[in-house]
Design a protein around this nucleic acid. Structure first.
Length: 203
DNA sequence: ATTCGGATAAGG
DNA sequence: CTTATCCGAATT
């Protein structure tokens, strides 16, 4: 190997699957930036141009272009003019798909994390996608980097606990697809907030 | 429950 | 130009 990690082929294969499947297996795995290490506790799948809640629903744009490329790349979008939200691209090239990293538990680098986030509880450091992005120091400049030879490094999960599934947060269309997954009992998981204009829940 | 902040993209 | 959005903090 000249530059990239020898585990790159395996990592790319891991991400080159349907977003929901990748999302499920991301729970309990780790993503790091320098000394800051986060164990992922909450993720959401966004799958293809047929998913009305996905940034790719209306086809390619300069912002979402990376979602159409090979898996294992980082997609950071700048949200509401202030938050950097981190996604990991999944599926094969041509199928725009990604997993939004919604929350995690900081397991190392608390000092750096708190420099970025301020005086909040450990559980709140990386609770919510904007806060997780801030904890990792993410900016849109990370878009397109891989999680094996870029600033963000991903390592597979060991064991992880029971998994909950429910509606995605803040989406107004396809609001009740249970594509938000989390580790049950984790205090770092963000509270569910339904989009104000989503259709009423079924039942 | 509501309000601001203010990038990105779609539609008029 | 107007409206909506994969959000978070602060306020009613």
């Amino acid at each position: 190997m000249a530059r990239s990690d020898p585990s790159a082929p395996g990592n790319e294969a891991f991400f080159s699957r349907p977003a929901l499947e990748v999302a499920r297996e991301l729970l309990g795995s780790r993503i790091s930036d320098g000394d800051v290490v986060v164990l992922l506790t909450e993720v959401e799948a966004y799958s293809g141009e047929s998913d009305p809640a996905s940034h790719a629903f209306r086809g390619p744009t300069p912002r979402n272009e990376v979602m159409y490329g090979p898996a294992g790349r980082v997609y950071v979008y700048f949200s509401y003019g202030m938050h950097h939200c981190v996604n990991l691209v999944s599926e094969q090239p041509g199928i725009a798909s990604a997993v939004l990293l919604r929350a995690g538990r900081v397991v190392d680098g608390h000092h750096t994390a708190r420099e970025r986030r301020g005086a909040v509880s450990d559980a709140a450091l990386a609770r919510g996608p904007g806060n997780l992005g801030k904890t990792l120091g993410a900016t849109t400049a990370l878009t397109g980097t891989t999680v094996w030879d870029g600033p963000l490094r991903w390592t597979p999960a060991g064991a992880s606990g029971p998994v909950g599934a429910g509606p995605r947060v803040g989406v107004s269309r396809a609001a009740d697809l249970p594509w938000r997954l989390w580790l049950i009992g984790e205090p770092s998981v963000s509270p569910y907030r339904r989009h104000p204009r989503a259709d009423p829940p079924p039942g």
